[in-house]
Design a protein around this nucleic acid. Structure first.
Length: 437
RNA sequence: GUGGACGUAGCUCAGUCGGUUAGAGCGCCAGGUUGUGGUCCUGGAGGCCGUGGGUUCAAAUCCCACCGUUCACCCCA
């Protein structure tokens, strides 16, 4: 069997079985995705978050304005297209769509603080590499309607709780504050002024960053550039007293919750909407893409999207693919897919009809039942039963039909018993501990 | 967009100083047991050796181009 088609570059299929892609990355099977998603939902529920689902398709302007016209995402990574006069984009992230939905549906009118989580695919037209895809999957939260430092701390606590719940412990939480936009602008100016005289000594990338986004120059790993930066103005010096007090409070609360963190004054996030607290969770040994999750406060976004009043908010976004990389690195336990309770093997045409009908009855009783749909030999059917990891296999042939008794084989021990047809459902539901439909 | 690496069976990979019908392990199918799986034994199916061109008596192997994949830079989840 073959096809000339294959999946789009930067996307991948999730199959019933795990497999290794051409880059050597293990792609987890569907059962593991469901396990991770279930765990995420469980933690979200414990922290009293409610799920929101927004479309994958959004207006291009929403993303352009929400994420920021100057960001890489908007400038070169959007899957955007026009159709009949409307501009569409496949969402590159979910924060702007959630805020859009919050404003559109007046969710503030539900009263109190809105604590929402989401989980679903996002799209960015980047060069794919390990831990980075064009269609990828994010989960995250948005806490809307409070500027309380407890919201910042809780956002971070939820994020770390999820990785803890999954057994991923080799992580590092970095935090920083960006202060308010006006102060940040002043700082960027000061930084630019400071760096300009050194422009010739800077590397090509740093020179480019100096033009586009001076804050990112702080990221440099080159020693001589770091030396230049030692004397550079610090963001923290420009941050207002209010911002500093907020930041101190967040750190205090994190300490109360025993959430370990490192302060990183150079932590700058790439999306325009962040203000005040920012943070990033790093994993170990994940290749070039070590950021498992990141987020922060974004008190101005609602207004950018047209709200007539501010909606203070915090949130984080996490990548599922990178979570799986970390899960593999941690060799954390994962459940296997569900095994069949019963496999029913049939011998002969008459038995096949009886089996087909009985299979339905057992399934209606709540049992997970598998059977052969190809008319294969008993040996082949037994092999199939084994592959399905069935706990029990029924063997139905002429003898069984005549006696009206099924041969029931317990696969692990190999023991066989005869069970009258009219007791079969009770027998199997009891043995397999199924309540019935 | 830039740089490196890699394209041989369903999967993981051998095979390249060019030389008969291109191999292994795993998986799949079947037989050993005409009504019994997981172990074992035996057999089988399955490959335009990424595509096109070139060199040569001869190309999976050498050369060129293209396509695809991947890692990395940038940036981000």
């Amino acid at each position: 069997m073959s096809t000339s088609f294959q999946n789009i570059k930067g996307t991948f299929d999730i199959l019933p079985d795990a497999y290794t892609d051409d880059g050597g990355t293990r792609v987890a099977p569907t059962a593991e995705w469901r396990y991770v998603e279930r765990t995420v939902r469980d933690v979200m529920a414990r922290y009293n978050l409610e799920e929101i689902r927004t479309p994958v398709l959004e207006p291009t302007d929403l993303v352009a304005r929400g994420v920021g016209a100057g960001t890489d995402i908007v400038q070169k990574e959007m899957f955007a297209f026009e159709r009949a006069g409307t501009n569409y984009v496949l969402r590159p992230e979910v924060t702007a769509p959630v805020v859009r939905s919050f404003l559109q549906h007046h969710l503030d009118q539900r009263g109190g603080v809105q604590k929402l989580f989401y989980i679903g695919p996002c799209f960015r037209a980047e060069q794919p590499q390990k831990g980075r895809y064009r269609q990828f999957h994010q989960f995250g939260i948005e806490i809307l309607g409070t500027d309380d430092a407890r919201a910042d701390a809780e956002t971070i606590a939820i994020m770390t709780a999820i990785y803890d719940a999954l057994g991923i412990s080799d992580t590092r939480l970095r935090i920083n504050t960006l202060g308010t936009p006006d102060r940040r602008e002043k700082y960027v100016e000061a930084l630019r002024e400071y760096l300009e005289p050194y422009a010739d000594e800077l590397s090509e990338t740093s020179q480019r960053r100096l033009e586009a986004n001076p804050l990112r120059v702080l990221d440099t790993k080159l020693e001589h550039e770091q030396k230049i930066l030692q004397e550079a103005p610090q963001l923290i010096e420009y941050v207002s007293d209010e911002s500093l007090a907020h930041y101190d409070r967040v750190k205090e609360l994190l300490a109360d919750l025993d959430v370990a963190y490192v302060e990183d004054p150079l932590l700058v996030r790439g999306l325009d909407y962040y203000t005040e607290t920012t943070f990033e969770l790093e994993g170990a040994d994940l290749g070039a893409q070590s950021a498992l999750a990141g987020g922060g406060r974004y008190d101005r976004l609602a207004e950018v999207l047209g709200s007539d009043e501010p909606v203070p908010a915090t949130g984080f976004a996490a990548g599922m693919e990178r979570l799986f990389l970390a899960l593999d690195a941690a060799e954390a336990d994962r459940p296997k897919g569900p095994a069949a309770d019963v496999f029913i093997a049939a011998l002969g045409e008459k038995a096949e009809r009886w089996v087909f009908q009985t299979t339905q009855d057992l399934r209606e009783a709540g049992l997970h039942v598998a059977l052969d749909l190809k008319g294969r030999s008993l040996k082949a059917q037994m092999r199939e039963a084994n592959r399905q990891a069935a706990d029990y296999t029924l063997i139905i042939g002429g003898n069984e039909l005549d006696a009206e008794k099924a041969t029931v084989k317990e696969m692990e021990s190999g023991d066989q018993v005869e069970v009258p047809f009219d007791e079969l459902t009770d027998y199997l539901t009891t043995k397999c501990d199924v309540d019935g439909a």
